[in-house]
Amino acid sequence: MAEVVLSGAIRSNLLSIQNTARLLDDTQLRLSTGLKVNSAVDDPTAFFQARSLNTRAGDLNRLVDSLQQSINTIQTADEGITSLQKLVESAKALANRALETPIVASSSEGPRQVVTDPSVAATAFNTAIASTDVLTVQVGGGSVRSVTVGSKTVGELVSAINGLTGVSAEITNERSLKIEGDSGRALVISSSTGSVAQDLGLAGSFTNGTNRDKFESDYNELRLQIDQLAGDANYQGVNLLRGDDLTINFNESQTSQITIRGVDFTVDGDLRLPEITARSWENEVNLRNTVRDLDAASRTLRTQASTFGSNLGVVEIRQGFTDQLINTLEGGAADLTLADTNEEGANLLALQTRQQLGSVALSIASQSEQSVLSLF
């Protein structure tokens, strides 16, 4: 089929209308997307620069999420230290109460106004007592100690009882025999041979003393709670109070970072709070050593809290910086690609007017060819 031949005037107007339609399409696209650079065809340099900036901004956005999780980990450790400090203070208060609680011996006292002469033989003091009789003493469920009466006088019998570890005996001002279990625990006085304990009026089990056993067991329970709390200060598998380290990256290439060193805040770790063995607090030196250990643990906790606080400040500063950097990158990308809606609106109006004028011009150009019809 032969090509249609158009006159120069018509072809010129047609091309102008086609160009105007193309520009109109471009302007409408910019208005609908808000971008003046929608693809590499529009402006290769601006398009790829904007893509690079947006890509880095996206990487940093993901990094900010990671920074927030790291902040939560540090805050968990800091809150754990605060709670550990309270437990240590409770343990110290308990130890101080134990210090203020004197040990009162459990005791058994025989009849009064009966011991008039300590030099009298025990067998003569009470004729029911035989020289083969054996007096036994037990304190706090410990080993049973014994004293054989033999040829001892009343005073010698008292001295022999005093020779037993943890037991005291005396002739009181009321002229009675008195035996005490020094630790304040249950005192059991009996006879393994004969009935000397009954004959002296001392036999039986006596719990009228005061000891520090309950303080010791409560303290050891607090030690257990300290270990359990330190173990629970865990955030997403990282526990800074049980020796885990935390490495935090500050940029997308992982060349800027900080490593927060974990600590072992257990009683057998950095806190150094040994278990209190049974009857250890009978000795006030041991009790004061416990108070000293608690003071040292408290100082250790405060020092580490300060360290974690400094680390937290650094991470929060870097998080704020990263947020600002993301805004800058996204703003830079927008500067390269965003369209000016006011300008594009004016362009749209101008192009629509041009399109209408082009149609009118094309109509005028075609009139000269239409005049030939008048010949027929």
Rank of each mutant, 00 (worst) to 15 (best):
E89N: 03
T127I: 04
F125G: 00
Q49G: 12
Q69R: 08
A98T: 03
S119E: 04
R112E: 11
S119H: 03
V115F: 10
L67D: 00
I129E: 05
Q75A: 07
A95F: 00
G58D: 15
P102H: 11
S70A: 11
L63V: 07
K86M: 09
A93K: 15
R62F: 10
A98I: 09
G142K: 02
Q113P: 05
A57W: 00
Q68V: 10
T73R: 02
D59C: 11
N54H: 02
A46Q: 14
V115K: 06
G110N: 02
V88M: 09
Q49M: 14
P44S: 14
L60H: 09
E89T: 04
Q69V: 09
A124V: 13
Q68R: 12
S52I: 09
E109L: 05
A122L: 14
S90V: 10
P118M: 08
S83I: 02
F125I: 04
F48H: 14
Q85F: 12
A98F: 06
R51K: 15
T136G: 02
Q68L: 10
L87S: 05
S131F: 06
G58V: 09
L60G: 08
A50Q: 04
R97T: 08
E89K: 03
F125T: 00
R112M: 13
A122M: 13
L87F: 03
A91N: 08
A130L: 08
L99Q: 09
E89F: 03
P44Y: 11
T127R: 07
L63I: 08
G142E: 01
A77C: 07
R51G: 10
V64N: 07
E109V: 06
A105H: 07
R62S: 15
V88I: 13
P102T: 15
T73W: 03
I81Y: 03
V120Y: 03
D133Q: 11
S108C: 15
V120C: 03
V88G: 04
S108N: 13
E100D: 15
A98Q: 06
A98C: 12
A124M: 09
G141S: 12
A50R: 10
V115P: 07
E89C: 02
T132M: 06
G58Q: 14
A98P: 08
L94K: 03
A77W: 00
P44N: 11
P44E: 12
Q75F: 01
R112S: 12
L99D: 10
V104D: 13
E89Q: 05
I129R: 05
Q75L: 05
N126C: 03
K92Q: 13
A91W: 08
P44Q: 12
G58R: 11
K86H: 09
L87K: 01
A121L: 00
L99H: 09
